[in-house]
Design a protein around this nucleic acid. Structure first.
Lengths: 195, 195
DNA sequence: AATTGGGTAGAGCGTTCGTTCTAGAGCTGT
DNA sequence: ACAGCTCTAGAACGAACGCTCTACCCAATT
């Protein structure tokens, strides 16, 4: 067997959470989609549905972090880097038929009231991504305070633009957000590091 | 009876959708929360759960539009207006214990695949709000192209910042987004209309 | 006084949910 | 050969789901 059963469960769950949220995703659907059985799922995740979801969210976080990191590293200028990021996201979103959005937003919104492990995993994901942007900005010479506020804004705006793009089935909201965020970043008048 | 049964159903459903999404909200919970019975619900909404949800989303759209309009009208300068908006949202979010977020996002994300009436209602809501911002910018003398792109970015960023604020249980993401959006709006160098 | 019809009330339908449970397959070390 | 282990397999449970259905209340109309 190529991939382990456990990995198949996590990956399939991550995709399902992304598309239909936490409550909308059933354990039995996960079993079918991952070609595993209920027995296997409860063997690897004695914590049940929530434990599977937490693992899937963490997987989604890393996957998205990799995409983000690659886009940020591809351009020395942070403004260009942000646009590269929204371009990649827009392309991926369109390719999936507008269903593969942010891997954590849907799950996060459904589990806000109960401060569960799942909710914590979602918060960790958002903060992790924010840190990637923050580091990029700091590396470009932005003052710490400006960089922090910009980083949270960039992640929030991308997050929101992705939802808007999905709902309208259009790349435009993401691309527009990318351009405006680039303008915002440039407005600080900090020269990109030459290499 | 003060409020009609139908109205109680719609209002209660709107709040439930906001907090736990579409799939997470049961018809029987709606009945309990709105002090109605199943019979009443299916009497007023023969279309079942989805019909109730559509009515609730439209109600949420109008409610949020009113808040948005008030905030936008309170300041002549569009940059200040956007910040006033995020301040109001942050205050409301904190007051609700971080659970009463955007009335449509949660429901929208769960119903992306099936192009249902519900999905359309969510798209209408987002576009309606965007138009309010657009009109404000146009009224301040922004060129049409810039205004359009700014308007979608503002709504997307507010949307995303609200989610981030909820997940982190903090006003800061919304306030930061407000400040950065104000900076972005000002970067176009258009004088606010004097009155 | 009788009738009509909008609205209320909730028992019960079939289905699906998350979870538990027992049984067995496939492998390793002795 | 046998015990011991991880992992697979799916039947079965109680609870909850969306929805249908019949029965009833009560104010307005005839």
């Amino acid at each position: 067997m190529q991939t382990s059963t456990r990995d198949r469960i996590v990956v399939a769950t991550a995709r399902l959470l992304q598309r239909q949220g936490y409550v909308g995703t059933g354990i039995k659907q996960i079993a079918t989609e991952s070609q595993a059985t209920l027995g296997s799922i409860y063997h690897f995740f004695p914590g049940g549905k929530e434990a599977v979801a937490v693992a899937a969210i963490r997987h989604g976080e890393q996957e998205f972090a990799a995409l983000l990191k690659e886009a940020l590293d591809s351009e020395p200028d942070p403004a260009e880097a942000v646009m590269s990021c929204t371009r990649d996201l827009a392309a991926g979103l369109k390719e999936s038929g507008w269903v593969d959005g942010c891997p954590v937003t849907a799950a996060a919104l459904e589990t806000l009231g109960a401060d569960s492990e799942l909710q914590k995993a979602c918060a960790d994901a958002l903060n992790g991504w924010e840190r990637l942007v923050l580091d990029k900005l700091l590396g470009c010479g932005f003052p710490a305070d400006d960089a922090r506020e910009l980083a949270t804004t960039v992640i929030s705006a991308i997050e929101g633009a992705e939802v808007t793009a999905q709902v309208n089935r259009s790349e435009e909201p993401l691309l527009a957000a990318g351009r405006q965020l680039a303008r915002l970043v440039r407005s600080y008048g900090i020269d990109p590091p030459r290499r």
